[in-house]
Design a protein around this nucleic acid. Structure first.
Lengths: 370, 370
DNA sequence: TCAACAACTGAATCGGCAC
DNA sequence: CGTGCCGATTCAGTTGTTG
């Protein structure tokens, strides 16, 4: 394990380990408010009544492992509500959860999430570019799975790397439907017999988008149904810490080997496009103080409105006076206005945005903090 | 009304009419086992906290109608279970139901459907080609809605026109995700003031696919939340009988006029919107997510410039950071640059264009349209 | 008449921080 | 806790106007 525990993490967390046990029992041993993100791929409660066969009579290796049978919806609901409750206790107040499922279980999960006090932020559809066809031709090809993204509570300040996701999507904001291939080829882990090691291994691309978009480097990501450890593998590569919980020894062994053989990406490759919100705040008055703008100087709007700069960093325009934002909003008769992008000044015969001056100050601050 | 009652229909059904009243009360007056399909677009129970403005300061005309207000999840669940129970009674034994919703309500609906004894056949995702963006950059663009398709009971011999749907989809099995534009333009009904007649009018293309795929000509289709009557309009065009239930007089009037006036024009418009397909867009970030390129990997230009790939699909090269196009333009001191043809990577000792990777993804997408 | 441009719109649980 | 204020934030279209 070449990944070190993170400074900001809560003491006593078993970081970057795979824990043997039932996920509810294990989560109940962890400290409350200690985990940044939970990614959960719970059993699907598949309702296959008999073995499914392809048209050529070869048998489909369906999900029929013993852990995936539930007597009734009631049993599944009880199981779901219990693990969601344990998960919510260990989540930090501003933490969030992702749960993935199909129509067999996702409606139970979504209802339980809402009832437990989680606040749904989006449902995200993983649209598979290469799904298994519907061999019998009796239904639509089941070509997607659904993920629910929810914060611990209404009003939580969840992490969302908007600009990074937008950059990843050619400059257009990321939508709630993601087109990604299913996990196969070299990525699909095999056991000693060459069979697939886990029936529902998720693709790393899916976790890449989840972790890049809704965690920061150094965050703690817990996966209560770790399986073959896709969550841990991607977390390690992206410089996040993980905690995995898995009951089946065979899965734990495959996952541990998989993760040990991975390296973390260079940290400069993990830097991500930042939102302007993360930039330090600059008061308009500083431009006046520093002489970048003089009291009495006239600012102009895109549509030719004018305002005069006062010595205290406020503007006057006719009856209106106040901050660059307030005066802009009054002149435009708008509920609000970003004065930084609204106002311009003249230099050497050219019209320049006042935001350019703010950027100068910010770049000075970066070189010499304080 | 130029549509005649169907021979096979149960006697006493008010075919091809719009009934005034609460849907539960009205359904309870209809004979049991009498309807082939129910399409329901119930209130979504949106919980809007305050006004939302676009970045240009214009106000979003949100759904704030009284019929969408519920006090709690419990109240919404009670409402849902009641109308689903009434609906199930009037469904024929081999009948089926479609319910459409968003993450606000669809999990409650799905759970209630399962609990009431319906048998879910698929969840189908309507991927909107032109959704409203997320103006605040706080979440993923809400770019889809979910429909649940369920039979009256497990083992029902529901209708599924597999070949018709396959033919509609260029010879490939119809998948569980449908790309269709939202309802706007001439199809969007307006009131006397020129405002939208209904806040959530569904596109005819959506109902066309539902009715063509899961009913036969002459079947009876009931819509308990008829609104402006998209279900009735498409049913009439496709030779199915409809029963609409709607409480609001204004909606009933608009719907009646719409259905009475159906012209050939409508089916032309339908054909156009059905043939619309989203152009496959490939973002450079997808190559990184999918592991085709690794964060930290170095790309080279034809003249030997280098840049490093970051986890969010942007590049860094010295001071320059941004998209493959932006960084290429900076390094060449050019106004613009096609990053796809500019950048190369190394594999097995050979230099390869990144465009080759894009072509791989494109070919995957082309094999499975829609 | 047409092209170019401006204005408008859609089921949305859409801030954050200092005081 | 509330109040006040800074200041960040949009995609794919359709309709209407201008030249």
């Amino acid at each position: 394990m070449n990944q070190k525990p993170n400074e900001s993490a809560v003491d006593g967390l078993p970081l970057n380990t795979i824990i043997d046990g039932d996920c509810i029992d294990v989560m109940n041993t962890l400290p409350e408010n200690s985990v940044d993100l939970i990614f959960a791929d719970p059993p699907y409660n598949l309702q296959l009544k008999s073995d499914l066969h392809r048209p050529d009579n070869s048998k489909v290796d369906a999900v029929d492992d013993h852990w995936d049978q539930f007597d009734s919806f009631a049993a599944y609901d009880s199981f779901t509500r219990n693990w969601l409750k344990a998960a919510r206790r260990i989540l930090k107040p501003n933490g969030a959860i992702w749960v993935i499922g199909s129509y067999h279980n996702i409606f139970r999960v979504g209802t339980a999430l809402q009832d437990a006090g989680y606040w749904i932020l989006n449902d995200v559809v993983w649209r598979k570019s290469n799904p298994m066809p519907n061999f019998r031709g009796k239904r639509f090809t089941n070509a997607h799975e659904t993920m629910i993204w929810a914060s611990k509570a209404e009003g939580s300040k969840y992490t969302f790397n908007y600009e990074a996701l937008k950059a990843m999507n050619e400059g257009i904001q990321m939508r709630s439907d993601w087109v990604l291939p299913i996990c196969n080829g070299h990525e699909r882990l095999k056991d000693e017999n060459g069979d697939k090691a886990h029936p529902t291994q998720k693709p790393e691309s899916l976790l890449h988008r989840v972790l890049l978009g809704t965690t920061n480097p150094g965050d703690v990501v817990l996966d209560p149904f770790f399986g073959t450890g896709t969550t841990g593998a991607v977390a390690k590569m992206l410089g996040r810490d993980f905690i995995g919980i898995e009951r089946e020894e065979a899965y734990r062994k495959v996952a541990q080997k998989r993760i040990d053989n991975l390296r973390k990406y260079d940290s400069d490759a993990l830097a991500v496009s930042l939102s302007k919100r993360a930039e330090p705040r600059v008061a308009f008055g500083q431009l006046v103080e520093r002489g970048m703008l003089r009291p009495g100087e006239v600012l102009t709007s895109p549509r030719g409105k004018e305002a005069k700069v006062r010595a205290d960093g406020t503007l006057v325009s006719g009856e209106a006076a106040g901050s660059i934002h307030q005066v802009g909003a009054v002149l435009e008769n708008a509920p609000s206005c970003n004065g930084w992008s609204y106002w311009n000044f003249r230099r050497d015969g050219k019209t320049v945005s006042i935001d350019l001056l703010r950027q100068q100050i910010r770049s000075e601050m970066r070189q010499r903090p304080n």
